[in-house]
């Protein structure tokens, strides 16, 4: 699914990521942990194609092709999705209208007809219920006045509706209470299958009680310093990041 090869990248000439290598196969769930400012979120944004980052060397191969020349919307069309750590608000833009526009943009890129509005409303309400949001949510503006928890839930709803193949979850657990973590995790677990791959960026072990990862990587100073199974996360929790350094 995804091969990150010797990736060195950052803003302007400054490197934030140093020689990252990572292979993710279909169906795998990877976790990237690390202290603040080690480049975890930067990696997520570079995978999604944010244009104020520069790739200095290395390559990102997704579904057997380099995606370095693809714009963020083209990457989304190819099935890359990022759940944002801080989802931005878009006042006046209705959640349902926004998501229908997004779904139709992706359908258009695949030469599919637009989804029937009636069908979409049904689908949207179904997902709202699954993630524990009231149907009035469909009348609000995108992330406008949402609580931290509502924002994260809305990210997961978008994931479910856009049906991507590679999902980057950037601190999806931060700002969520225990109940919300469980609901959001259930949503993610229901979405997991052998064709979907996940990268979860997190500081904490907590969410891993619900989402069983296949691999855990520890990032330090822009590079992956240790990889292992889920026991690595437990060990980190016990010993702290100092142990890695």
């Amino acid at each position: 699914m995804l091969k990150i090869k010797n990736l060195t990248a950052g803003i302007d000439d400054k490197n934030i990521l140093n020689n990252i290598n990572l292979n993710i196969n279909s169906g795998e769930f990877h976790v990237i942990m690390g202290t603040n400012g080690t480049g975890k979120s930067t990696l997520g944004h570079i995978l999604a194609g944010k244009d104020n980052y520069n790739v200095h060397s290395g390559d990102i191969i997704y579904k057997d092709k380099s995606i370095l020349d693809l714009s963020p919307d083209e990457r989304a069309h190819e099935g890359i999705f990022m759940s944002f750590q801080y989802p931005v608000s878009i006042p006046g833009v209705n959640t349902m209208h926004f998501l229908r526009t997004a779904v139709n943009s992706i359908r258009k890129s695949k030469n599919l007809d637009e989804i029937e509005p009636g069908d979409f409303i049904k689908l949207f309400k179904e997902k709202l219920e699954l993630i524990g949001l009231k149907s009035e949510f469909s009348k609000r503006s995108v992330n406008d006045g949402f609580s931290g928890g509502e924002k994260k839930r809305f990210e997961i709803i978008q994931m479910l509706l856009l049906n991507p193949d590679l999902i980057i979850l950037d601190e999806t657990d931060s700002g969520l209470d225990i109940d919300a973590i469980r609901i959001v995790s259930n949503g993610i677990n229901a979405f997991r299958n052998k064709n979907k791959s996940f990268i979860l960026i997190t500081h904490y072990n907590r969410i891993l009680n619900y989402l069983k990862p296949d691999f855990v990587h520890v990032m330090l100073n822009g590079t992956i310093v240790k990889s292992g199974g889920k026991e690595l996360a437990v060990e980190l929790e016990e010993k702290g990041y100092e142990w890695i350094k």
Partner: peptide
């Protein structure tokens, strides 16, 4: 970027 990431050009 948020819109782009959702596939909207």
């Amino acid at each position: 970027f948020y819109c782009n990431q959702r596939g909207i050009d």
